[in-house]
Nucleic acid binder design. Sequence first.
DNA 1: TTGGGTTATTCCTTTTTAAGCATAACGCTA
DNA 2: TAGCGTTATGCTTAAAAAGGAATAACCCAA
Lengths: 124, 124
Amino acid sequence: MLFITYRKECDLAQHYHLRGRFWIESPQGTFLGQGRVLLLERVQELGSISAAARSMKMSYRQAWGLISQMNSHSPEPLVLSSTGGQGGGGAQLTHVGKRAIQLYHEVLIDFEAFLSQRAQTLKL
Amino acid sequence: MLFITYRKECDLAQHYHLRGRFWIESPQGTFLGQGRVLLLERVQELGSISAAARSMKMSYRQAWGLISQMNSHSPEPLVLSSTGGQGGGGAQLTHVGKRAIQLYHEVLIDFEAFLSQRAQTLKL
DNA sequence: TTGGGTTATTCCTTTTTAAGCATAACGCTA
DNA sequence: TAGCGTTATGCTTAAAAAGGAATAACCCAA
């Protein structure tokens, strides 16, 4: 008897994962991404850039740079900050900043739905 | 008369772009991504890892590392290589490697369609 | 047997990136 | 007025990633 061997189809969904990322770019570079949005959320929650950075184990330097970029790449700032006073100062989101978070999450839901749906038919 | 000023809605689609990437992960890390698939295509086209690397302005070292990873993270290799002989040796894709390219492009088409469609309703 | 071009692999250097440090200004509180 | 915690910014240092150089093995062709 003759056996014809052929490769068994490999179901990628079992052992492999389809992953992805998305971000919004301005003409000057990245405007909104996963890290930036998380940072915005922490600022909104904690009322301070430095506290937000600490909570993410990110250096204040980087956090400030990201926020500075976002503000400058937008016609209106996403974060307003004040120095001195009770607590030393702080920062809060503008309604544009809050809307940016909301917008990102709206896209994120669709994005994840797309990935998980598309992953089901991955046969290598 | 009283004017109530409100922020004009900013159409992100005009000045900003929704971008993204996707890749297939094995339990050990990235398995297939944009760069790896391009490398596979060049190997298929040129019949050599070093030629493929040159054509992408990638170092042979990195190209070899990527291919080595892909092969080891797959139950069957994607690239077969031989040393010595006419032309010094070479490499060619297995049918698993060819299928990987095809699979990636199938997902890519859907992915780009998703992004461009989703970008149309971006209002900040 | 020598040369050529490739695969395969290690080691070291360079570049890029991120983290850390230092300092000044601010404005409330005690 | 002194102190505190924050914002804001430049400069220095460390970590990580990419790049390049070097070497051995391979096998056909001349």
